[in-house]
Design a protein around this nucleic acid. Structure first.
Length: 827
RNA sequence: GCGGGUGUGGCGGAACUGGCAUACGCGCUGGACUUAGGAUCCAGUGGGGCAACUCUUGGGAGUUCGAAUCUCCCCACCCGCACCA
């Protein structure tokens, strides 16, 4: 028997062998269906963590399994390599350039990934910080620019003082920077935006085309896009006659408006108070509110506060005069920055009205109830029947909505309108380590796109890393100063770089043709896309996944791609926990993948992480669990090498007659293959798949130890070990390769077809039937399979135990479940 | 507050369309082999009871011959969103 399971030697050997033979290299081909398996590429922080190991182990099983099932599988890997940590390292240590830092991290992490034995086609590796890549990121910026989807505007933007850069709306979490938790400030800056709002409807509606996405992620995107349908109509300022447009989704309650509220930033607040006795107090209020941090301002817990500005407006529906207020709870950047206050039917308005003693008027009454405006504490925001609403009285509120909208449109008071919560995507970053925005500013010509032939606009190496709030690129005059591509006069380059989410919004397309002399080869992209299975953390539910969907839709519209959605199926893997909490450096509960691999090998690490929990659930790390998986692989190893000498020259099982023990073994083996296949195909339940493999191993051990050696049927054992190595191969690729070779297999096991189970082997001639009396299990009995209901009943009724238990009772009913169960109902 | 999820032995988790609850693994107990075992193998392992038996899937009700699974109410924890008019 071969010595022990020396995973160190064996894993290194096979990794080298696979690389030498280009085992995982793929090209487009017509003879097999394609399958694109993709895991979210990592930021090269320096070392793999367990979350990566889990992500890539899941992806590798999918890729290897699909390969064995006969698909032509694309399984690439790369690096999301631009971003702040590299630059912060440069600021902190002074002597290490972000480029150097990043590339050395990439080299280290590539080595770690290779040590995991994952089946990547490394020839397709991309790194977003490489000029060959960001050249095309810049090209895509220009494509959007030319199509009116990239524009510059001055806006109050989110500014992180610690990162010294602006942030996209999506990168602000609870009013703080998603990266460093610093409270975000508002700053008025000229910045570049992508017009993602132009795709709001499609980004929302097309979620329905993604049945292979988790409901949770779709709902998160849906909420983020936040479509609401309503009307926009004008109140008119009394005396001065200015229009104040308001947006509402509850136009059925328009007769219940008893006041109007403007956001503190609303231009009319200043205008209508100028020179009036209210001016000073209102200005003081507005300044106080504007000084509040974003978080305090927008939190629902913040007490509603406001002030009457001294003017009145006319409700166009009933000609009524209502006071105009300004208040902290109305936001300038949603809708029109002005809302009608309907206290009876909106809780916020009711709270506000009670505080400032504003009138409350019921205009929708629930069926069979009479709300009292004097005592109302909970606003009634459901459907009902119209009251106090002129010509609309008596209508159901839903119908009144339509009629009022019609009326407004006919009378040209207002119009139906859809509003989105989604904002345009702010992509400018005042940082160095990103793709430069390919724009030149010329005094005469304005913002001029860099011509395609001049791409990439390369990042200069020589800059100063100081977090000043200006891009470090401003410190390099050779970069900054250029000539206008249009008129040739001196001009300045844009010094901001792009948000790194731009880089990652299209990398899956570049993988299809990593060396293409254009953004990607259309034919190849159309061959490989969509990604059949995308796997990654749920933290990307909104940002990355929505931006990528946006990019793909733009490319689809511009005839660059035949597909409208990038990711057909999405699996969001759970976190890796230790001691009940997420593994993190600050908690000090991390486990190093590198150490685990050194101690037990990659096969054990992969097996454990797939066995410990289903992929979408959180996984509790257990050192003892790892130990158990290591023991299991050793157990498999001993089993195989115990038989290797005996199996020499033995042919594979071919349908011969088997004795009882052998038949039981064969049934267990084929039942195992069936279960693993189902578990992977139907729901990626690798944990139960692995448990089925363990049962196969247990069955083989049982046969080996319980049946005298001279009676063991070796052709069947050979079949068993063949099946075993094949189904284990996607999970533990190295050890199975080694054992396959030892068992006389030719070629790589990873290029073998996935085994089919033999339905004939599953047939049982005896089955165990559960005997229940009044639904309680009382006994079990062995009977021939396929008995009819009455035969079953006859068998059961003649059992001693059943006769005893039924003595003196009256049988009311007998419920038979063929080959499974018989329930006797008695009184 | 709204939305989504989870709740099963000492632990991680199984149970597919309602049909043997606790597969598989960890841990634990006992034994075998051994100079030794932290290697390996065998047996046992939800609770109560000497036993026949009985109780048990967060809690409570219901549907059903039969419920971890379906329906209703409640509780706990986790995640996401949160003044969006």
């Amino acid at each position: 028997m071969k010595e022990r399971y020396d995973f160190r030697e064996l894993e290194a050997k096979w990794q080298e062998e696979w690389e030498k033979n280009l085992l995982y290299k793929v090209t487009e081909r017509g003879d097999k269906p394609k399958y694109y398996a993709l895991e979210m590429f990592p930021y090269p922080s320096g070392n793999l963590h367990m979350g990566h190991v889990r992500n890539y182990s899941i992806g590798d099983v999918v890729a290897r399994f699909k390969t064995m099932q006969g698909y032509n599988v694309l399984h690439p890997m790369g690096w999301d390599a631009f971003g702040l940590p590299a630059e912060n390292a440069a600021i902190k240590h002074g002597n290490v350039h972000p480029s150097e830092w990043t590339w050395s991290n990439i080299n280290n992490m590539r080595r770690q990934l290779k040590a995991m034995g994952i089946s990547y086609d490394w020839a397709r590796e991309v790194a977003t910080c490489h000029p060959d890549y960001y050249k095309w990121t810049q090209w895509l910026f220009l494509l959007l620019f030319k199509n009116g989807l990239a524009y510059k505007k001055k806006a109050a933007v989110n500014w992180c003082p610690s990162c010294a850069t602006v942030l996209a709306n999506e990168q602000v979490v609870d009013g703080a920077c998603e990266r460093c938790d610093t409270i975000v400030e508002k700053k008025d800056l000229e910045q570049w935006f992508f017009k993602i709002t132009a795709y709001a409807d499609r980004l929302l509606d097309d979620l329905q085309k993604l049945p292979g996405w988790p409901e949770k992620v779709k709902i998160m995107q849906q909420n983020w896009i936040g479509r609401s349908t309503g009307v926009e109509f004008n109140f008119t300022v009394e005396n001065t006659g200015e229009d104040i447009p308001v947006f509402t989704t509850r136009h059925d309650t328009v007769f219940g408006a008893t006041y109007l509220v403007l956001a503190p930033e609303h231009p009319l607040v200043e205008k209508l108070t100028a020179g009036t006795p209210h001016e000073a107090k209102v200005r003081e209020f507005v300044q106080r509110v504007r000084q509040l941090k974003e978080m305090e301002r927008t939190s629902a817990d913040t007490e509603k506060e406001g002030i009457f500005i001294g003017a009145y407006a006319i409700n166009p529906m009933n000609g009524e005069q209502v006071p105009i207020w300004t208040a902290n709870y109305v936001l300038m950047d949603y809708g029109t920055g002005a809302v009608m206050g309907v206290p009876a039917h909106d809780q916020r308005d009711l709270d506000f009205s009670r505080k400032y003693s504003l009138p409350v008027r019921i205009v929708v009454q629930p069926l069979g109830e009479q709300l009292d405006p004097e005592t109302l504490v909970t606003a009634y925001d459901e459907e009902g029947f119209m009251v106090n609403s002129g010509q609309f009285n008596g209508l159901p509120s839903e119908e009144a909505k339509e009629r009022i909208a019609d009326h407004m449109e006919q009378q040209q008071i207002g119009r139906r309108r859809i509003n989105f919560r989604l904002r345009d995507w702010l992509i400018s970053r005042q940082r160095y380590w990103g793709a430069p925005i390919p724009i030149v500013y010329c005094q005469g010509c304005g913002a001029v796109p860099v011509p395609e032939k001049d791409l990439p606009v390369e990042l200069p190496l020589k800059v100063e890393f100081k977090p000043t709030g200006d891009s470090p690129l401003t410190t390099n005059p050779d970069f900054l100063n250029t000539t206008c591509p249009t008129c040739g006069k001196p001009a300045k380059r844009e010094t901001d770089t792009m948000d790194t989410f731009v880089d990652s919004s299209w990398y899956f397309l570049r993988y299809c043709s990593p060396d293409a002399p254009e953004v990607y080869d259309q034919a190849k992209a159309n061959y490989w896309m969509n990604v059949d299975q995308y796997i990654g953390g749920v933290e990307h539910a909104i940002l990355h996944l929505m931006y990528s969907r946006f990019f793909v839709k733009v490319l689809y519209d511009l005839d660059w791609l035949d597909y409208e959605e990038p990711f057909q199926n999405l699996l969001t893997q759970g976190m890796v926990l230790k001691d009940g909490g997420k593994m993190s450096k600050s908690k000090g509960n991390t486990v190093s993948p590198e150490e685990i691999i050194a101690k037990y090998g990659a096969d054990t690490a992969r097996l454990f992480i797939l066995f410990a929990a289903p992929p979408e659930r959180d996984l509790e790390w257990s050192d003892q669990g790892v130990e158990g998986c290591f023991r299991f692989l050793n157990r498999v190893w001993r089993l195989v090498y115990n038989y290797v000498p005996q199996l020499e020259g033995v042919s594979l099982y071919q349908d011969e007659e088997l004795d009882v023990e052998a038949r039981n073994l064969r049934r267990a083996l084929h039942a195992g293959v069936k279960k693993i296949t189902d578990d992977i195909t139907q729901r990626f339940n690798f944990n139960t798949g692995i448990s089925a493999i363990m049962e196969m191993v247990n069955a083989l051990y049982h046969y080996k130890d319980q049946v005298p050696q001279e009676q063991q049927y070796l052709p069947l054992v050979k079949e068993g070990l063949w099946l075993l190595t094949h189904v284990l191969a996607p999970f533990a690729p190295h050890i199975t390769e080694e054992m396959w070779q030892a068992l006389g297999g030719s070629g790589s096991i990873h290029q073998r077809p996935w085994p089919k189970f033999d339905p004939a082997a599953l047939v049982q001639d005896q089955v165990t039937i559960v005997v229940q009396i009044n639904g309680k299990v009382r006994d079990r009995v062995q009977v021939p399979a396929n008995l009819s209901a009455s035969e079953m009943e006859q068998e059961v009724m003649s059992m001693d135990r059943v006769i005893r238990l039924l003595a003196g009772k009256e049988v009311v009913k007998v419920i038979p479940v063929p080959d499974k169960l018989l329930n006797i109902v008695v009184k």
